[in-house]
């Protein structure tokens, strides 16, 4: 999964997280100890790398309103899937 590897690389470099700690089941916020500013940097790097606008606010709203579980967006394997979908939709 190319998106997964790229995102893992971005997280490791941006937030100084050991690469081996980043697994498909890892929750980006809860398991990797990434704070909100590092997360902002990661989203910016993902936006640039994939040419997308990661809809973090919409995702957060869905989670906060109970419409979707946080894992759907913020667990590594699912995050990679969402990014691939965004990149595909962009064409």
């Amino acid at each position: 999964m190319a998106a997964y590897d790229k995102i893992a690389e971005i997280i490791a470099e941006t937030a100084n997280v050991p690469r081996e700690k980043i697994t498909p089941e890892a929750h980006v916020i809860n398991d990797l100890g990434i704070d909100s500013l590092d997360f902002l940097d990661i989203v910016f790097a993902i936006d640039k790398a994939f040419g997308v606008k990661v809809p973090v606010e919409a995702w957060t709203e869905q989670v906060n309103s109970g419409k979707a579980p946080a894992e759907q967006f913020f667990v590594m394997k699912n995050l990679a899937q969402r990014i691939e979908e965004l990149a595909a939709a962009k064409g």
């Binding site: 902002l40 989203v43 910016f44 936006d47 640039k48 990661v54």
Partner: peptide, 9 residues
């Protein structure tokens, strides 16, 4: 430089 979701650079 970049218009993100909930942020801008």
């Amino acid at each position: 430089l970049h218009d993100g979701s909930g942020y801008a650079v």
